[in-house]
């Protein structure tokens, strides 16, 4: 049995009168890519943002490697090893690749940024991951959409994360770039034995890439499916029942 890496227990969250999540629980295993699907407003992104420390839950617990964790900010979650990839990349277009990758976790010598060391580490990581970026000195605004999302993913991988949260990572990408990004993520999760949670609307991609699928509706998880045992028609039916 593969070891669990993340466990969410009874998470609830309301925004004013709107109940976004009601008693949500899930388990994520090492080397597993878990997909969460649901219509708009089902609570998928809220759940990811709670795990990533962007929102605090009203109630419920999060366990990382069987130890309870409480995040007051995204930085707390990042320090614990939970990284998130966003639909709109969340990069700074006017900074170069190196600056974006290390943003929030820069390496300093005394008071000054040590770009030399950051570049060296980044080059080694690129080699290790067989990553293709035109230049680490290039401003991100000059990269294609696919390359920008790869930089965003690269940023999450620099500090050996335990859990990778992917919030519609390919929504703004072409078909070719989407395939490249997802193949890379899938392979990475398997080889590095990290856990991945993947939220997307493309049901064919969900079935193709994920190891397990959770269906959410009105802030609750209402079904669990294995990709080889389901199809888009059934998933749509479950989402809209």
């Amino acid at each position: 049995m593969v070891e669990e890496i993340l466990r969410v227990e009874g998470i609830s969250k309301s925004f004013g009168a709107i109940k976004a999540l009601s008693d949500v629980s899930l388990i994520l295993h090492k080397g597993e890519l878990l997909a969460i699907i649901g219509d708009n407003g089902a609570g998928k992104s809220t759940l990811l943002k709670i795990i990533a420390g962007v929102y605090s839950p009203d109630s419920g617990k999060i366990f990382l490697e069987k130890k309870e964790v409480k995040f007051k900010s995204p930085m707390d979650a990042r320090k614990a090893g939970i990284e998130m990839v966003f639909q709109d990349f969340m990069l700074c277009p006017d900074l170069n690749v190196t600056q974006n990758v290390f943003l929030g976790r820069e390496i300093v010598s005394g008071e000054f940024l040590n770009y030399k060391l950051m570049k060296k580490i980044l080059k080694e990581k690129l080699k290790d991951l067989k990553f293709d970026i035109p230049s680490i000195e290039k401003k991100v605004r000059f990269l294609s959409g696919g390359q920008q999302q790869m930089v965003a993913i690269l940023r999450t991988l620099m500090f050996d994360p335990k859990v990778l949260l992917l919030d519609e990572p390919t929504a703004n990408l072409s078909a070719g770039a989407s395939e490249q990004v997802m193949n890379f993520v899938k392979q990475l999760i398997k080889t590095k034995m990290i856990g991945g949670i993947y939220v997307a609307h493309d049901l064919n991609a969900i079935i193709r890439y994920s190891d397990r699928i959770l269906v959410m509706r009105s802030g609750r998880i209402i079904a669990e499916k294995m990709p080889e045992e389901t199809n888009p028609v059934e998933l749509v039916r479950l989402m809209r029942l």
Partner: peptide, 24 residues
């Protein structure tokens, strides 16, 4: 050009939401 805070000034102007989501 050389300090973290200087970099964050540019980063905040470039994409404030991204900077906040990264915990800066």
């Amino acid at each position: 050009e050389k300090t973290r805070l200087g970099l964050y000034v540019r980063a905040t102007g470039s994409n404030e939401l991204a900077v906040r989501n990264l915990g800066v």
